[in-house]
């Protein structure tokens, strides 16, 4: 029998995790929405960024939260580089070709990481958020609370960006209707490059957050890619709120799945939900696609 305390604990952990997942998926939703590019290397970019975090932490004793400040602009530029090198050539090509190229990129990143760092998971030796509060029966880890808060703040900022700035509005109108946006004189090539850069920069932020409590190993990206796509599928392109709700569902499902079944079956729960959503709500739960 599962105690109410445990249920509560797992639900709260699931919510924190879910908020973080939505941040991870946000970049993907943005890229897919604006430029219709299917990126399967999303999680692998996160994994590479996480190794950066680990390296700076071990070699330079820099806290992951500080590394984020460096990583965000760096990965923005890396993102733009990837866009011009690999994404632009396959823009508008069949989905299969896009998937092939980005899966290829993912494999390259994964195995470079494997060659350099081996399969052994790595964690940062120290993070300023390495403590926890007790709230009655509930334990709240500062790191998890921190990433949840940062996720919310970032998504709020992103929301403002998309609604208040010229580039943000251009992104939104391109998501809604590409042809009209082009007619309105939006330079789609630059817009795409910036969007891709932004999406990748968001991943860099996520990776720093992840490393405040998580571990990195070369295959970390695969599960993050899949989870992000699940969230995008559920959220539809219904905007940031859709992504957040879907992220929460995935986070809580994973957390409760590992409680009620076994930890090794937790992803099965998430993916079964994914099946059901795709089958019965093919346009996502929270908006159109």
């Amino acid at each position: 029998m599962i105690s109410p305390e445990l249920l509560l604990q797992n639900s709260v952990d699931g919510i924190f995790l879910g908020l973080f997942y939505s941040l991870v998926a946000m970049g993907l939703a943005l890229i897919f929405g604006v430029m219709d590019i299917i990126n399967f290397a999303h999680g692998d970019l996160l994994m590479i960024a996480a190794y950066f975090v680990w390296l700076t932490s071990v070699d330079l004793s820099v806290d992951p939260t500080v590394t984020a400040l460096l990583l965000i602009p760096l990965f923005f530029i890396i993102g733009i580089g990837i866009f011009f090198g690999m994404i632009q050539p396959v823009l508008g090509k069949e989905p299969l070709i896009q998937i092939a190229v980005t899966v290829g990129l993912g494999l390259i990143l994964q195995n470079i990481a494997l060659a350099m760092f081996k399969a052994q998971p790595k964690a940062v030796p120290y993070s300023i958020f390495n403590f926890s509060y007790s709230l009655g029966p509930l334990t709240i880890y500062a790191s998890k609370l921190f990433i949840a808060v940062i996720s919310i703040v970032t998504m709020y900022a992103l929301n403002v960006f998309l609604n208040k700035t010229y580039i943000g509005l251009a992104m939104r109108s391109t998501t809604d209707n590409r042809e009209v946006a082009q007619l309105m004189g939006i330079n789609t090539r630059m817009l795409y490059a910036v969007t891709f850069g932004l999406g990748v920069a968001l991943i860099a932020l996520s990776s720093s957050l992840w490393m405040t409590f998580g571990q990195v190993q070369p295959y970390l990206g695969t599960s993050f890619s899949l989870i992000s796509w699940v969230i995008v599928a559920m959220g539809g392109l219904g905007g940031i709120t859709g992504v957040v709700y879907s992220g929460l569902i995935v986070g809580v499902a994973e957390s409760l799945g590992s409680l009620f079944l076994t930890p090794s079956a937790r992803m099965a729960v998430v993916y079964i939900i994914f099946f059901l959503v795709l089958w019965f709500r093919p346009r996502g739960l929270f908006g159109r696609r």
């Binding site: 690999m86 396959v90 092939a100 494999l107 195995n111 494997l114 081996k118």
Partner: peptide
């Protein structure tokens, strides 16, 4: 010594094929 070299190869070939020889 270099685990994953095989998959690295698949990745590179896949990118090249995708871009230049769909």
């Amino acid at each position: 010594t270099v685990p994953g070299l095989d998959l690295l190869l698949y990745g590179i070939v896949l990118v090249i094929v995708g871009i230049f020889q769909p």
